[in-house]
């Protein structure tokens, strides 16, 4: 191509040569984006836009195209830098993909211009697109699988596996930022009675409603999970003892006063603890568990701290 162009320059036969190249070619004044020339094929395909702005007539843009490569084809003193650039572009006006080959040169009348050879590549793109769509389907499936493996099916909360991972990350952050983190372990009081009296279906709906109440009460930065049967764990990053205590009390009250379907009233006991230096998942959950045990021992429907 380089030699061809040089030959064209030497012979001043741009137009004749451009006409025999079997691809659309247009030439643009780099100063003002005016189309200086279009070869026969390009005119046949798109119409004669000579004298009009390239970005408007060819690409349907109101201002120069964001992908315009002209600056890359000029040297710092605004002379053609002899480089040729090749890239792919989708043209919204005729809804086609092109590979554009562009270079700057001096037009016979002395103007600095850029020529663009446009090769249609729709078929190549169609193949690439099928591959991309396959990638997208695969990525979506992966996301669904990830969600399935980290979510409790009944309540839609994080499952225990996911929360253990979150807890370990949050403990690490606590070590770095020095701020307290609160962990609440909630257990529905006398849940066995619900199952025994009303059956497992009602039991399941109580668990779902309970989970919904927790979700509606926590902040965006908090995490809730179903920890086991009727046990739920809530992690509140950057939360001190005072505010976590009042949050736990509020949550206990919300649950106590919520009219649950069929069973009406449900209460829960809450074990609360705050992160300490050197805590790991086991030590912090161990304390929450101890606090929960205390709450149960002290009559249920209450919050205890350990």
């Amino acid at each position: 191509m380089k030699n061809t162009v040089r030959k064209m320059l030497e012979n001043n036969l741009f137009k004749a040569l451009f006409d025999v190249i079997p691809f659309g070619i247009y030439v643009v004044d780099v100063e003002n984006f005016d189309i200086v020339y279009m070869n026969k094929l390009m005119i046949e395909k798109r119409g004669d836009y000579t004298g009009r702005k390239c970005y408007e007539s060819i690409y349907g843009e109101e201002k120069p195209c964001y992908f315009c490569k002209t600056p890359l084809l000029l040297s710092p003193d605004s002379r053609p830098n002899e480089s040729t650039i090749v890239f792919e572009i989708y043209n919204a006006v005729d809804d086609n993909w092109y590979q554009l080959q562009e270079k700057c040169l001096t037009w016979p009348d002395g103007r600095l211009v850029k020529y663009s050879i446009a090769v249609g590549i729709n078929e190549l793109k169609a193949t690439q697109n099928r591959l991309a769509e396959a990638h997208a389907i695969l990525a979506l499936k992966n996301k669904e699988l990830e969600k399935l493996s980290t979510t409790d099916r009944l309540t839609n909360l994080n499952n225990r596996l996911k929360l253990e991972e979150i807890l370990s990350q949050e403990l690490e952050k606590t070590g770095q930022n020095g701020k307290d983190m609160a962990v609440l372990l909630l257990d529905i009081d006398h849940f066995k009675k619900v199952n025994d009296t009303y059956g497992h279906q009602v039991g399941d709906s109580v668990l779902s409603e309970f989970a919904r109440l927790i979700l509606d009460s926590i902040r965006k930065v908090d995490y809730a999970s179903r920890w086991g049967g009727e046990e739920f764990l809530v992690v509140c990053p950057e939360t001190d003892i005072k505010s976590s205590m009042s949050f736990a009390e509020d949550l206990r009250g919300i649950i106590q006063h919520h009219p649950f379907t069929t069973v009406n009233q449900i209460t829960c006991s809450i074990g609360l603890t705050i992160s300490r230096d050197g805590d790991d998942e086991n030590s912090i959950i161990g304390r929450a568990d101890k606090a929960l045990y205390k709450a149960k021992q002290n009559g249920r429907n209450r919050v205890e701290i350990e």
Partner: peptide, 25 residues
């Protein structure tokens, strides 16, 4: 989109897109 690179597809899904279509439509 007009991008068929795998990374761009993954970025779109990561951003939350539930479908992916390439130009020309």
């Amino acid at each position: 989109t007009s991008h068929s690179q795998e990374q761009m597809v993954l970025d779109a899904i990561e951003a939350g897109a539930k479908g992916y279509l390439l130009k020309p439509f």
